[in-house]
């Protein structure tokens, strides 16, 4: 199956800009389905970005992050061709990991 994680990491000067989009329902637990039953909360809790063995960004998320969540940040360092490791874990214990090349 295709990865749930899409990443664009581009290095420019001494800064690497990272954008990520993740396929996840991010159900809040406050919405009812067509039958009127509450859709249980199902959301990513933590998303981490690692470069060169250390974390450069950690997102802690609640249920108010939009479906198919998006985040953008930048960090100093990171060269073209370097690996950026991205992983998430959700409230049901599901997880996914991918490694992207910095462009």
């Amino acid at each position: 199956m295709a990865s749930t994680i899409r990443v664009r990491a581009t290095s420019s000067g001494d800064t690497t800009e990272v954008q990520a989009l993740i396929q996840h329902p991010m159900d809040s637990g406050f919405v009812k389905d067509a039958k009127g039953e509450i859709i249980p909360p199902h959301f990513i809790q933590q998303l981490t970005f690692e470069h060169d063995g250390k974390s450069v960004f950690v997102a802690n998320w609640g249920t108010a992050v939009s479906k198919d969540p998006y985040v953008k940040f930048s960090f100093k360092g990171g060269n073209k061709g370097d690996d950026l490791k991205i992983s998430w874990v959700d409230n049901k214990g599901a997880s996914d990991t991918t490694t992207a090349k910095i462009l």
Binding site: R6, Q19, L21, K72
Partner: peptide, 8 residues
């Protein structure tokens, strides 16, 4: 559009 939701 920086990372559009129709990407998937």
């Amino acid at each position: 559009e920086q990372f559009p939701p129709y990407e998937f």
